[in-house]
Design a protein around this nucleic acid. Structure first.
Length: 327
DNA sequence: AAGACGTTCAACCGCTGCGGC
DNA sequence: GGCCGCAGCGGTTGAACGTCT
């Protein structure tokens, strides 16, 4: 229904973004915002504003740099057929040969100035677990309550770390359910729709609740900190090496030891620090609406959430005995 | 040292909801 | 009310990298 005719077959570029592309996209969004993603690549092909700060260079995460510097990737890029833009198409322009969808994803998941990069803290992981129990696989809803984290990132962390902490039986059930869902897709889709209506009601209920982790300095509410530290201690007692490793990793967060890593990180840091030092008005112009998702005060949020869940969530989970930490 | 295997995460795919016409 | 275009979402993929043998 109304599926946008994608231009990818008309020569749009795919794959990892280059620093140049990032620069173009960031510069464009800083100066124009992103009212229309689809038209953005064309507009972004227009000359950059002369006022673009020299420091406005792309982020340089380790993965990104690795990929950019990868010889095999360079070979693939060289071997790839040269993209031919179709100037009649609103998506295509020599300046930024990406579809709007790709631009949007890149901005939301990577270039946004309020993205928090680095390992997830124990508090964040516990929040994800709790929110996942509340909301299910609604990653965007979970991300909205974890400032600086994207749905994609949370989804990745869930699948790579957190899911494994669940007992194996539960994981098998999940996998089985997923397989069954694939077999019975139409019925599942109908149920999903029904479920979404229910979840909207839940959203309406919980919309009043501010983010779980909302303060800009990444601090968390005292209740949450308390509860998660208890949980971490319990995990360590059970000899959960994985979580212990992640705990120690989170301690190491943003504190790289090798010179190579710290150098790369410095690039990233300077980029973001300079970007973040932009006047607030500029940031608001970029349509971030940071106060919506991240700026609300967090006082009493957890209490509210727990109350909502205890009152309404018990039915679906039948036992209702969610293993929430003591507050 | 080298190959196999596992992990991570950016990016893509395809579906859905919503608003405009 | 139906169609169309768009943004947004969740699932999935695939390449780079890390670890194991």
């Amino acid at each position: 229904m109304g599926r946008a005719p994608c231009c990818e077959k008309m020569g749009l570029k795919r794959g990892p973004w280059t620093p140049e592309e990032d620069k173009i996209l960031v510069a464009h969004i800083h100066s124009h915002g992103h009212g229309n993603w689809r038209a953005l690549p064309k507009q972004a092909g227009e000359p950059l504003p002369p006022s673009l700060p020299p420091s406005l260079r792309p982020s340089a995460s380790q993965t990104h740099l690795r990929r950019l510097l990868s010889p095999s990737l360079a070979r693939r890029r060289a071997a790839a057929p040269r993209s031919v833009p179709d100037l009649r198409c609103p998506c295509c322009f020599a300046g930024l040969l990406r579809c709007g969808k790709s631009c949007r994803l890149r901005w939301i998941n990577y270039l946004r100035p309020d993205i928090k990069r680095g390992n997830f803290t124990d508090e964040e992981e516990q929040s994800i677990i709790q929110l996942h129990q509340l909301l299910g696989n609604r990653w965007s809803a979970i991300a909205a309550r974890l400032p600086g984290r994207t749905d994609n990132e949370i989804k990745n962390v869930w699948h790579t770390h957190l899911k494994k902490r669940l007992d194996p039986g539960a994981q098998e059930q999940l996998e089985e359910a997923s397989a069954a869902k694939k077999r019975k897709k139409p019925a599942a889709a109908a149920r999903k729709r029904e479920g979404k209506i229910k979840m909207r009601k839940l959203d309406a209920l919980t919309a009043k609740a501010a983010p779980v982790l909302s303060s800009p300095d990444r601090s968390v509410s005292s209740t949450l900190t308390e509860s998660t530290s208890t949980a971490s201690a319990a995990e360590e007692q059970h000899g959960n090496s994985g979580s212990s490793a992640s705990a120690s990793a989170s301690v190491k967060e943003e504190c790289f030891t090798s010179s190579e890593e710290s150098e790369e990180f410095q690039i990233d840091e300077s980029f973001w620090s300079e970007t973040l030092s932009m006047p607030l008005d500029d940031i608001n112009d970029v349509c971030m609406e940071p106060h919506d998702a991240f700026g609300k005060p967090a006082d009493g949020d957890m209490d509210y959430w727990l109350k909502v869940f205890m009152e309404g969530g018990g039915d679906d989970n039948n036992d209702g005995a969610l293993d929430l930490p003591q507050i």
